[in-house]
Amino acid sequence: MPQVSTASAPPAASRRLQVLPRILAAILGGYVFAWGTVALTTSALFAVKLAFHDAEFLGALVGLLAYLGAFLWAIATHHVARLWMVLVGGGALMAAAASLLQSRLV
């Protein structure tokens, strides 16, 4: 996606086209990123001997705040390709790490 020049705003039609992937990234990409954060935080805290329900709770808290951060970043950023990579890729990596931890513990 080409960098938008800061000197002038793009015309309405192309702006609408740019908005949709941004919104999808915020909602769907953000969810994937949040899920990964919840999973990794939960399993990592459980791994360091925190009670399971405590780990779940902190995982949810951190994950929700991560979703909020991802959402805001998705709307504000200029680099949409990087956005998708970090949100979806990062989320998947964190989820994989969580499952890896689980297989070590069970």
Partner: peptide, 24 residues
């Protein structure tokens, strides 16, 4: 959001981390 997180929004303990949940 926190109240429903474990049951609806991010049911990680019942799905992906089911193993850890049962262990616990």
């Amino acid at each position: 959001l926190l109240i429903f997180a474990g049951t609806y929004y991010f049911p990680v303990g019942h799905t992906q981390l089911h193993g850890l949940h049962d262990l616990h």
